[in-house]
Every structure is written in structure tokens, then in C-alpha cells.
């Protein structure tokens, strides 16, 4: 039986009496890739923030690897959930080199250098390791962001419109490479996007979030 990485049961979230998410249910197995499509403001990013532990939930439960991490009276801190996220804003640490950004989450691991080497090779950024984020291009920064989030081997990698600031040519190149990397590493991916084509290329199951509810579309 395939291992369940993520399970969401009847999740509800409100901001100032406005319902953002209602009765959201979702399951994700190891190696499975799922997309959530939706308009701006539909609650896609809020759902990811709940899973990451940045937002407390009003109702429902979130399990990661069968362990309850969020409910209306429980909130396991983000740093203890072992989930990764790459977003449009990349959020690289501007004072650290590419190498130090990537190794940031695995500083105490013995095989730190090995992991960094593997990831820099995988994302073709070996020539950038001593550079600061401001010294590299937007596309390269996004590769570093992916490498950094994969370094701690997260249970789940969440992608919050990570390609929206990139040009079309660069996007196509990254889709192709990421598709191979995700397959090779058997990663569980939850992608949030408003781009239907992107969702189809990178994931196998598609959902749509409308008026706070999640509907399966493909």
C-alpha cells in the first residue's frame, strides 16, 4: 500500500468572518503530484500556508505522514513538519551565498556537502555556488530556491506559483527539468497555479478551488 503523505479532512479557514476555505478534503500519496487551480484570491495560497503551519485552521484536520499537525486546538510548528515550499518570491537569504542558501536547512547533517553537490548538479548551478543571490538572474535564483527546499528531503514539496515571474522560454526549460527531478526523487508535489497548461505538464491530478471548496477536475 502506498504511503499517505498528506491528508486533509474537512478543513475550514476564515479571515475576519470571511470564509476562505470550507470543507476541503484532499489526499496525497508518496510520489504523487497534484495541482490546485483557481483565480487570484480563491484561497489557494492560504491552503498551502495552513499545510505549512503558517496559519492556524478554524476547523478540520491536517495530517502529514499520518501524524496530526493541525486542527482547531493543535498546531505543530512549521519547523517540525518537514515540508518544503517554493514560491514566486523565492525568498533566498540575500546575505548568504548560493551554497550556504542550499545547505541552510541541513547544516548539522554529515553528508551536507554531498547533498549540496548533488543538488547543484541536478539544477545545473554548480558554477554559481559562491555567488550571492543578487549576483544571479531570476531563473537561476528560482533553481537555487528549488535546490534549497529539496536539500532537507521534505515529506512534501509545495509550489506556490513559482514560475509566474519567469519568461515562457525559461518556464518550459524548468518544467522539463523539474519533471525529471521530481520523478527521479519520487517527490510528493502540491502545486498551486492559475496556469492550466503548467498544471498538466507537472502534475497528474488537477483540482479547482472555487468559493473555498475543492473540486476534482481531471
Amino acid at each position: 500500500m502506498t504511503q499517505k503523505i498528506l491528508k486533509i479532512e474537512d478543513l475550514a479557514l476564515s479571515y475576519a468572518n470571511q470564509k476562505v476555505l470550507k470543507d476541503v478534503n484532499l489526499e496525497l500519496s508518496k510520489g504523487e503530484r497534484v495541482s490546485i487551480l483557481g483565480e487570484s484570491g480563491s484561497g489557494k495560497s492560504s491552503l498551502l500556508r495552513c499545510i505549512a503551519g503558517f496559519e492556524p485552521v478554524n476547523n478540520g484536520k491536517i495530517f502529514i505522514k499520518n501524524k496530526l499537525v493541525s486542527s482547531n486546538n493543535l498546531m505543530i510548528p512549521t519547523e517540525k513538519r518537514n515540508v518544503g515550499m517554493v514560491a514566486q518570491e523565492k525568498a533566498l537569504f540575500p546575505h548568504l551565498t548560493v551554497k550556504k542558501n542550499i545547505s541552510f536547512g541541513i547544516e548539522r547533517k554529515k553528508n551536507k556537502d554531498e547533498v549540496v553537490n548533488e543538488l547543484t548538479n541536478l539544477f545545473k548551478i554548480t558554477n554559481l555556488i559562491d555567488k550571492l543571490p543578487r549576483q544571479i538572474s531570476g531563473g537561476e535564483q528560482q533553481r537555487v530556491a528549488f535546490a534549497r527546499s529539496l536539500a532537507p528531503s521534505p515529506n512534501l514539496l509545495m509550489l506556490d506559483e513559482p514560475f509566474s515571474a519567469l519568461d515562457d522560454e525559461l518556464k518550459q526549460e524548468l518544467y522539463y527539468e523539474l519533471d525529471k527531478i521530481f520523478d527521479k526523487q519520487e517527490l510528493s508535489i502540491l502545486l498551486v497555479t492559475h496556469d492550466h497548461e503548467e498544471a498538466k505538464i507537472l502534475t497528474s491530478r488537477l483540482f479547482k478551488l472555487t468559493q473555498g471548496s475543492l473540486i476534482s477536475i481531471e
Binding site: 505549512a52 510548528p77 515550499m85 537569504f93 536547512g105
Partner: peptide, 26 residues
């Protein structure tokens, strides 16, 4: 930016480490 601190948390840092390793150097 809050996203930088959130990245730190996703990479396993607690409140004190975020202060000493991210906010303070920045």
C-alpha cells in the same frame, strides 16, 4: 520580507534561530 523568515521556518529553524541566523545578519 516575511517570506524570508518563513523559508527559515520551512527549513527547520525556531524563533530564536530565525532571529540569530536570518533577521540579525540581514
Amino acid at each position: 520580507s516575511n517570506s524570508i523568515k518563513e523559508s527559515g521556518r520551512l527549513l527547520g529553524l525556531g524563533q530564536i534561530s530565525i532571529f540569530s541566523k536570518i533577521s540579525l545578519p540581514l
